[in-house]
Design a protein around this nucleic acid. Structure first.
Lengths: 204, 204
DNA sequence: CGCGTCCCTTACCGGGCGGTAAAGTTTTAC
DNA sequence: GTAAAACTTTACCGCCCGGTAAGGGACGCG
């Protein structure tokens, strides 16, 4: 049969490995994470990994791209809304996940943030995150710029504003994950509203 | 001789081990960090560690306390200054280090941030960081509250403001360390000034 | 001196890790 | 139909890590 739903292609198996890697990483944490753990998270034996990937490092590089692609693919914002609405939507999505508190969202974020910190010791991984971060920040900057053009926002330094917002979002997520502050995202949302966006509106 | 500068006390050795641990961690990164690396960073053999500490985990717990104590001990702010000045000083110290760009400051921060992220997988470590974070945030909140009382700041939610500031600081440091954005602390400083503290002053 | 205590070293080990070799098994190609 | 190609498994290995056992030297105290 050539039914792509039945036959097992290399791509399918690689996705299975990626998801198993994600689960293993999520359960054990980066430092205690072993190749064997991946095997225990899927129906295949752990040795298939060496057929599809060239060792642990290569696997992690591919996994990092997988995670980043998934993150960026999950962002859905209607771009024709007015700037303030779009900005709110983007912030909410970064802080609370695509579908508010979707199951597994914080597990994914936990892995994401762990990889982010570890990336400082690996130039390739660092570059991947750097590009990714730039795209996230860029999308926020664009909205701010549009808001300024349309006269809805004050004429602030859009780059700086975008940077600040992304930083706050990132910190709040990190705090929820690393310290267990479950209300960190909501706090960040309030703080952004009261102290940052408040001064952004054009009428003052 | 009972000269404490000549005899080798347990405390001295433990400090030597702590500093060697710091260097090893700084060079190899948390995940590739081995007990053996500590031995290579000091004149003693690595086995002495097992005399002073009860295994790798116990060592890391002690090291975490050591790092946190050092961090908090390095904070020096004249508390009799007016609120805005003290707030500025605290922010600068968190962003740029005790003595502006003191040598080794960012190496220490790198280790600090790595431990912070890893703490999510260890309840004891997480608790240590949680308390620490609370003290840092608390000191910022206090200044804000004082500023409000003295009429220098608007009557904002001091807790929320303190949280926001600490989060921004944390994110900027993390970005400099993990992504190599050397100007992240300066950007954060500007953003805080222009978008946050600007709206904090009482006259508006 | 001699004995105990504290601190450190030398030598060694068991276990578990990532990785490989070779033998299936299934799918594709002609 | 059959041979090659693609994929997976079983079995195995060498290395390196954290940890321990045993001993040696320096100091304190009788």
């Amino acid at each position: 049969m050539s039914d792509p739903g039945e036959t097992v292609s290399a791509k399918d198996t690689e996705d299975v490995i990626m998801e198993a890697t994600f689960r293993a990483l999520s359960e054990h944490g980066y430092t205690d994470f072993r190749m064997r753990d991946i095997g225990e998270e899927m129906d295949l034996t752990r040795q298939v990994i060496h057929y599809h990937f060239d060792g642990k490092h290569d696997l992690m590089s591919s996994f990092l791209e997988y995670v980043i692609d998934q993150y960026e693919g999950s962002v859905e914002v209607e771009e024709d809304a007015d700037p303030r609405t779009e900005l709110d939507a983007r912030i909410d999505q970064c802080l609370f996940g695509p579908e508010f508190e979707e199951f597994g969202h914080w597990d994914r974020m936990k892995v994401y943030h762990e990889l982010y910190t570890y990336a400082q010791n690996d130039d390739d991984h660092r570059a991947l995150f750097d590009d990714h971060y730039d795209r996230i920040r860029g999308s926020v900057v664009e909205v701010v710029e549009r808001g300024i053009e349309e006269g809805e926002f004050r004429a602030v330094d859009a780059e700086l504003m975008g940077q600040l917002l992304t930083d706050v979002i990132h910190a709040a997520r990190g705090r929820r994950i690393a310290l267990g502050h479950e209300d960190a995202p909501e706090q960040a949302r309030r703080a952004i509203d009261e102290f940052v966006l408040d001064s952004l509106s054009a009428d003052d």
